[in-house]
Design a protein around this nucleic acid. Structure first.
Lengths: 209, 209
DNA sequence: GTCTATATACAGATAGAC
DNA sequence: GTCTATCTGTATATAGAC
């Protein structure tokens, strides 16, 4: 017998649509400029349905943010994947990092969360610890190992991780956050990643003995 | 004859009070969460008076931002002031830079402008060009000169300026923007400034020949 | 669970007295 | 220029039908 009832798969379909719409709108317009009406309209559900699944606007926003923290996970995974010498692996990391960092949707997430940190500090802290900090922490054991092999001279691996990230990020993140028009293309990003890693390697080069 | 009329000094006193109140509230609560009523109340003027001097909320916000761009000028001035060798001057710059960067009111400005860049990109761009970019540009001729004297090895002074700033900024700016509790005290800032400059000098050290 | 219609509150902006 | 009082739109959140 063929059923015309909605399949089991559709369970939780509405909340999913609400989350997707909320993400899109929060990121495009920011928290304050997005209304629950807009979200309901875009998700093609009634407004009361939104409130059925999320207690209020603040909680819906938090749900969106929690999800987006995982955007950093691609980076963390790229760290352990692949082989090659130290420089090749650092360059590969730098390249992925750059890409993710200034992707329009990632910039939108940063903007929106930084904005709401004014009134909801714990939201900002949670994002930082589940996002940027995890990337840094994933670099640490890797750099420590390189130091143990004598390829790097460092006494503070966490600081070294921060420095590597800082050199790769350079002014690109701020420029993107402030909507300064000139952003690098694909080719330039390759070049920037290589240059940043070279400078990092020189700053942390072991003495020539 | 003694006049009971308000003295000439009081000309423009109301607009000044409005600007001060607007700055305080915009920075504390963000643009969206601040109402024109709040601003008028805090400035102790009628709401219509606010609209007498500023066409609308957006323009008032822009006026506040324009003023605050000058917060970076202290940095630019600190660059040309004082003497000492290259390292000493770089450390002095780094120390001032760190201080200004994570001062609560500067963080508030960054947060608020980044938030509004979503809907008013030209505002973000203007702030970047009149703030962070000016600091970078002020460093350029100074680093170029050091390179000419053979104290640094660099072919791209702008890139070197960005790297110096990046190493000093490290993760402190992001941590502050996301309200991560642990921020450095006075002593740690001295230490951080010195360490960052040392790493910069090593990354740009001329060949020993 | 889902919708339409609505209660309630407050925002930005203005009219008109002084 | 400055104020009080008000217009008008729109936001969050809910009541009640299905």
């Amino acid at each position: 017998m063929l059923s015309v009832e909605p399949p089991e798969v559709e369970r939780g379909l509405k909340p999913e649509a609400v989350l997707a719409a909320a993400k899109k709108l929060f990121m495009e317009r920011g928290y304050g400029a997005t209304s629950m009406d807009d979200i309901a309209k875009r998700a093609k559900v009634g407004k009361a349905t939104v409130y059925e699944h999320f207690q209020n606007k603040e909680e819906l926003f938090a749900a969106v943010v929690t999800r987006e923290c995982r955007g950093h996970s691609a980076l963390v995974e790229a760290l352990n994947a692949g082989d090659g010498d130290l420089r090749a692996r650092l360059v590969r990391f730098a390249r992925v990092f750059l890409d993710v960092l200034i992707r329009p949707d990632m910039i939108a997430i940063y903007r929106t969360i930084i904005a709401e940190t004014v009134r909801a500090p714990q939201l900002g802290t949670a994002f930082y610890e589940n996002g940027p900090l995890r990337v840094r922490n994933a670099l640490v054991p890797w750099l420590s190992e390189a130091a143990r092999r004598g390829e790097l001279a460092l006494d503070d691996p966490e600081r070294a991780a921060v420095d590597l990230i800082s050199l790769v990020r350079a002014d690109l993140h701020l420029r993107a956050l402030f909507a300064v028009p000139t952003l690098p293309g694909l080719v330039e990003k390759d070049e920037l990643a290589r240059a940043a890693v070279d400078r990092f390697l020189k700053a942390y080069a072991p003495p020539v003995a």
